[in-house]
Amino acid sequence: MKTLSELHLDALTEVFNIGAGRAASSLSEIVGEEVKLSVPRLQLVQPADINMQTLALNSPRLGAVKQQFSGPFDADAMLLFTEERALEIVRDMMGSHISIEELAEYEQDAMCELGNIILNACLSAMADILKISFQSSLPRYVVDSSDVILRQIIKDTNLSIMLALHIDLTIEKHHTQGNLVFLLNSTSLQELIAHIDHFISGI
């Protein structure tokens, strides 16, 4: 079974950085000022090693935006933030005049949209570069204890690998970190590798 090489990872990192650039541009259109979004690190995590440390998220509660996508290969994509960070992001995006109580009401809605923008931007960058296309479900946002969210990630017994992208997001001078994870089963991983190989060999 093939696994991702350095060159594959380099190609994927570039794909996600282009996705991050597109997402930042959409977000800045909404908040009306510059938004910085970068994906400095891409990490491959084996199912046995998936825990809070590998995700670099230390909080009892997490917020997760999920989309399932399918196409030449299928994957579950999830954007993860600690709950406090998620609220801060929503406040930055909505403007500071909003009260904390109101924020909680809007969190669900606003986080779905934020996750949708980032996940779609990354998927569409991948689709453009690898010349493939995906279908996707609508985003869903869940807030739960970190254990529950982690269990949902690893419950799929076919899970072969997790691609974890550490995200740096800056809105209105506030710096936030989160994680974008793609969960792939072994068939999907092989398909992904084949598509990147095809792309690289075409250069």
């Binding site: 991050a20 650039g21 597109r22 930042a24 960058a125």
Partner: peptide, 8 residues
């Protein structure tokens, strides 16, 4: 060349 296409 950049993926960051914001005006600034």
């Amino acid at each position: 060349f950049s993926g960051n296409i914001q005006d600034c």
